[in-house]
Write a protein that binds this DNA or RNA. Structure first.
Length: 947
RNA sequence: GGGGCGUUAACUCAGUGGUAGAGUGCCAUCUUCACACGGUGGAAGUCACUGGUUCAAAUCCAGUACGCCCCACCA
């Protein structure tokens, strides 16, 4: 017997170890079963479990467990990502707390430190996934810096280089001066900020006039090489081609015309051109063959070159801005300062203002790689759900730009390229800094890389032996892009790849569609000849209850584990409590343990396809109540099996039925028919990724059908004293345990722990599996599809409901039995139904005696009348009912019915409805009208008799 | 500038052509032998707005308002 009350924390501590021990999570690449495979979106090793993880575990585990039960060889392949910038920044922060920097430690010692940290903390996140029940094949766990994956990365890089799809080039790139690395376009955020627009006068060299330019970055003026105006702008026609004096310097720069760069309507219509520090200016400079003058360095300070006037050299860009503006004011060149809202680029990781700099970097030719990936989606070889994401995908892929893959970090895959110090003499610079362990290597774009799988011993050109490796590492997403096949052993042709590639479903958040999904598609098509997944399911974003993204600074973070295990605010560390401020404002006394099962069930319910989720804890509590209901219903079934030989008839292939349909009671036939429907709905919904529908279906069947009616009806059979019921009792017990057992299997992918706990407690026969997670997925049993008998039971339910309705609205106290109930109908089938089920009706309606009579029977006056399923329910007053209440009740029902009748009439009186609507719709409408009219008539008569 | 999404009960959300649903909350009532994380009954919505298509619109189309997201640009 299971415990009296449902304690998720206790239940969930029991089963994970059992499943692991039994090896149920392991997928065999040599199996004969059809494959089903999901590779996990690898969480950052630095990561701490958040709602996004909880959501993907919920959905991926749901799919994996479902397919496993359906008889697939189900592989959910886990692993973690080294998360280059995130991890390095974190460890550097630790070092800073000790007063050290990575440059003091040097590359080797720093990396050792990161590895030590990874060894210590790297399993945190995977342990947290396990708490949610993730049935991953942990023996196959991978890390993007594993030996095997490094091998795959090198292989991919070298092949792409040899195919000309990777190249090194000097371009303007996004430089993060805090993290000291270049960033891809995707790693940059833009939010509006308020700044200024400085209007500065540049005088013509010949003294004939001046131009006023507007800029948001006056400190870059030392890098100006031209002032650009629109060719059609009449104000400046005469100046085009003339030279201007650049204020604060002794340089002169030309006025040029460029329609793409200058907008006559913005500012003064004239714009300064600084090709080394602005992307538009860079493009303009290229068109006009202008020089590029770099004036800001990688530390975001002004360079100490001759281009920068001595006074400003070495200043930070901010200090320089202030100084320059002051000097311009003094010299009279500053015309005005305007307030201005602009969108500066900031590094996602460090928050630093990105400085565009001219640097040699490694690039992937994305356009070529994108083609087959686009085609795969166009032809439906890979499908996206919700399908609207395909548009976003195409839009980006068709306009894709080359991908900058090098990063000036240490934590990551060092690029497999070397430079010969002899051949590339003069292009390799070692910059020694006092206090830095290693010299910094700067490698000019003119240096010639030697790309190789292993470190070359000699230079293939000159035979020289002085080779240095490219210090840069690869963008984290380069290795993640290989994830679906690198984790399976690529470039080796492994059995795992043969069995499981391409994978079945990629399940992830849509915000990494470009970062990750698109790149996996490109690499998969290129290296494997096939896109890596059949289906891509994008889940929703989990937001807070008012729809904002969760973030620590907003204080609206909801840590899934706080919900799973419960929490008291006083036990939470300050920092975390700050991050979850909103939560503790709403729940000052803390939160009760909800359990992983309830969290999972809730997320499935809330995350309808493609919709963002606003997480409302009240709904989680509601769904925990549902799991409690399952638990309590199970206790009822188990209690009634005690001391009997009735057992669940599950085997490893399905269920055997000890009873034939003709031996079933009406209630049995009804619930088994309903079970069939439920099985069908859940299965179809999961297949279509409509997880909320699937969960909803089980929810309704278990609560509204099984608990509310079948269990209640079963009591009149099980607790009957007469001998005649004995045979029915055995049947009822079997139906109880059979329906419960099947529901548990349907529910297992949603709530794995509690379903296992209960399932294990059920009495089962020979041949039953050892765990619900390897039990077969329920199938519809055509033998038990019994529509007519199910419909009769629905009639019975309607009768009981009608009695209860009268009781409730007429304020008959629940303790008071109704002495006499008349049921009027001329239909023999219904008469028999009421007769045979009268025990149940008496119990559920709290009625002492029932008489079944024909419709012509004279009603006692006064009486209360209700209509259900075409039969008339009559309750003689006999002092039971408050006349006023009853009049009110009838009036209300009459009003509603009258409205219904009018609506139906109006429709049916409309000739075009009758002609043009589908015949079955017209037929339904006629039936409805007839039914409502008959009902209305009866109620009206009853009302008249009340006076 | 381009694209996308949303607006349904007090709250959080389902519902893609045929008389509006759930959870929580609310009102009344009941601690009856699975369950008060419960039972029973009840109240509660002009489905943002305006047009259109249709016999029929929460649902399809167009527009408006408000909210949100993505991409691009921004001197």
């Amino acid at each position: 017997m299971i415990d009296k009350s449902y304690s998720p924390t206790q239940v969930e501590s029991r089963w994970y170890a059992y499943w692991m021990e039994k090896g149920y999570f392991h997928a065999d690449e040599h199996s004969e079963k059809p494959p089903f495979c999901i590779v996990i979106p690898p969480p950052n090793v630095t990561g701490k479990l958040h709602m996004g993880h909880a959501l993907f575990v919920t959905i991926q585990d749901l799919l994996t467990r479902y397919k496993r039960m359906q008889g697939f060889e189900a592989l959910w392949l886990p692993g973690t990502d080294h998360a280059g910038i995130a991890t390095q920044v974190m460890v550097e922060r630790q070092l800073a707390a000790e007063g050290k920097t990575r440059l003091e430690l040097g590359r080797e010692a720093f990396l050792e430190r990161v590895w030590a940290w990874k060894r210590e903390k790297g399993s945190n996140i995977t342990e947290q996934l396990k708490l949610l029940g993730a049935s991953c094949d942990w023996a196959r766990e991978r890390f993007t810096l594993d030996e095997g994956l490094c091998h795959a990365v090198v292989e991919a890089f070298v092949r792409l280089y040899e195919e000309g799809l990777i190249y090194r080039d000097e371009r303007l790139v996004n430089w993060d001066p805090v993290a000291k690395t270049v960033l891809s376009d995707l790693e940059i955020d833009q939010e509006p900020e308020s700044g200024h627009l400085w209007h500065i006068r540049y005088d013509l060299e010949d003294g004939t006039g001046s131009v006023v330019i507007a800029t948001t970055r006056p400190e870059t003026m030392f890098g100006d090489v031209a002032v650009c105006v629109h060719p059609g702008d009449e104000r400046y026609q005469a100046m085009i081609g003339k030279m201007l004096r650049l204020p604060l310097t002794d340089r002169t720069i030309p006025v040029i015309a460029d329609a793409e760069t200058a907008d006559p309507a913005f500012g003064s219509g004239a714009v300064k051109i600084t090709p080394a520090h602005d992307f538009n200016d860079f493009a303009c400079g290229q068109r006009h063959h202008l020089p590029r003058i770099q004036v800001i360095g990688m530390d975001a300070r002004m360079l100490t070159t001759s281009d920068v006037p001595a006074r400003y050299r070495g200043m930070t860009r901010e200090a320089c801005r202030e100084a320059a503006v002051g000097d311009l004011q003094t010299s009279g060149h500053l015309v005005k300062i305007e307030g201005h809202t602009y969108m500066p680029s900031r590094s996602q990781r460090s928050g630093a203002l990105v400085e565009p700099l001219l640097l040699p970097q490694w690039w992937v030719n994305a356009r070529v790689l994108a083609e087959p990936a686009i085609k795969a989606v166009e032809t439906g070889k890979t499908r996206m759900t919700p399908v609207l994401w395909e548009k976003t995908f195409f839009n980006w892929m068709h306009n894709i730009r080359d991908w900058c893959i090098s990063r000036q970090l240490w934590w990551g895959h060092q690029i497999p390229a070397w430079y010969c110090e002899d051949c590339s003499r003069g292009h390799i610079h070692r910059i020694e800094q006092p206090g830095h362990r290693d010299a910094e290597l700067r490698i000019d774009s003119q240096a010639r890389p030697i790309v190789s799988r292993t470190c070359p011993e000699t230079c293939p050109v000159c035979g020289g032996v002085h080779l240095v490796q490219e210090p840069d590492v690869l963008d984290t997403w380069f290795s993640s892009g290989l994830w679906p096949f690198s984790t399976m052993g690529w470039p080796e042709e492994t059995d795992t790849l043969k069995k499981f590639y391409p994978t079945s479903v990629m399940e992830t958040a849509a915000d990494i569609i470009f970062f990750w999904v698109a790149r996996m598609m490109m690499f998969g098509s290129h290296f494997m000849g096939e896109t890596p997944f059949r289906d891509i399911y994008f889940h929703a974003l989990v937001r807070d209850k008012v729809g904002q993204k969760m973030s620590k600074t907003k204080g609206n973070v909801i840590d899934p584990l706080l919900l799973v295990f419960g929490c008291k605010p006083e036990n939470i560390p300050d920092e975390e409590r700050k991050a979850s401020r909103q939560l503790f404002d709403d729940y000052p006394d803390g939160i009760d343990p909800q359990g992983a099962d309830a969290l999972r069930f809730s997320l499935t319910m809330l995350a309808a396809q493609g919709r963002d989720v606003r997480l409302d804890i009240r709904r989680i509590e509601g769904y925990r109540a549902f799991l409690n209901k399952v638990w309590q219903a199970s206790r009822f079934v188990l209690m009634n099996l005690e001391g009997t030989t009735t057992q669940s008839t599950i085997t490893k292939d399905g269920c055997i039925e000890p009873f034939e349909p003709e031996n079933l009671s009406l209630a049995d036939a009804w619930i088994l028919d309903g079970l069939n429907r439920c099985i069908e709905e859940v299965t179809q919904a999961i297949d279509k990724f409509n997880f909320n529908e699937a969960a909803q279906s089980v929810y309704e069947f278990l609560w509204n059908a099984f608990c509310d009616w079948y269990i209640e009806l079963s009591k009149s059979v099980l607790y009957a004293k007469d001998e005649a019921q004995a045979a029915n009792q055995a049947c009822t017990r079997w139906v109880l345990v059979h329906v419960l057992e099947t529901i548990l299997r349907l529910l297992h992918p949603f709530a794995p722990f509690m379903t296992e706990e209960i399932w294990q407690a059920l009495p089962k026969g020979e041949g039953a599996p050892d765990s619900i997670m390897i039990a077969p997925w329920p199938k519809v049993n055509p033998k038990f599809c019994d529509v007519p008998r199910a419909a009769l039971t629905r009639g019975l339910i309607a009768v009981v409901s009608a009695v209860r309705n009268i009781r409730g609205e007429a304020n008959i106290p629940p303790g008071k039995l109704i002495p006499r109930l008349l049921v009027l109908t001329d239909d023999p089938a219904r008469q028999t139904l009421i007769e045979t089920m009268q025990d149940a009706i008496r119990q559920l309606g709290r009625v002492e005696m029932i008489e079944v009579l024909g419709t012509e029977t004279a009603k006692p006056a006064p009486c209360a009348v209700g209509v259900a399923d075409g039969v008339e329910i009559v309750i003689p007053f006999a002092g039971l009912i408050d006349m006023e209440e009853e009049r009110g009740r009838l009036d209300k029902n009459i009003a509603k019915l009258t409205k219904d009748v009018e609506a139906s009439r109006k429709k049916l009186d409309n000739p075009s409805f009758v002609e043009r609507a589908k015949p079955e719709v017209v037929e339904t409408e006629r039936e409805r009208l007839e039914r409502h009219m008959a009902e209305l008539e009866k109620l009206q008569k009853a009302r008249v008799s009340l006076g």
